[in-house]
């Protein structure tokens, strides 16, 4: 049985949300420490459900599940903060909202809110 994962990127805003949750010690770094990320573990059965629910999703050569809707990724981060965890229960909680996420994902092909930057 394989172990998969989903990469959750952390910008300054997301860093502020996980401060004090105990998740800081799980932060991984790329590009000389300039990119911070968390990896959420996904067991085989949940990976299959994700691929079944979201047709754009795929598994890359590292075992990372990619090309998920933005709505999925945003909810995943919300659940990480709420559950203070990177375990499968986070993905299970996201999948409980699958209909809501799919509805949002449909609209994603028409509009995505741009970030506010200086």
């Amino acid at each position: 049985m394989g172990e998969y994962f989903i990469v959750v990127l952390l910008d300054d805003y997301r860093m502020s949300k996980i401060r004090g949750t105990g998740l800081e010690e799980h932060i991984k770094y790329m590009f000389g420490g300039e990119l911070r990320l968390l990896e959420v573990k996904v067991p085989e059965e949940l990976k299959d459900r994700i691929l079944q629910e979201f047709e754009t999703a795929r598994v890359d050569s590292r075992g990372a599940i990619t090309d998920l809707p933005v709505a999925f990724m945003r909810e995943l981060f919300n659940q990480i903060v709420e559950k203070k965890s990177l375990g499968p229960e986070v993905v299970e909680a996201v999948l409980q909202k699958v209909d809501e996420i799919k509805k949002a994902a449909e609209k994603e092909s028409e509009y995505l809110p741009p970030p506010e930057i200086d």
């Binding site: 952390l10 910008d11 990119l35 028409e110 995505l112 809110p113 741009p114 970030p115 930057i117």
Partner: peptide, 28 residues
Amino acid sequence: AEGVQPPSIIMRPEVYKVIVKWWKHFGY
């Protein structure tokens, strides 16, 4: 797509600003 600004070591902030400029224009 997630609205996360790529670090400058992989994308220059000036380039990202251009992406956001046209993102605002086209809504995507």
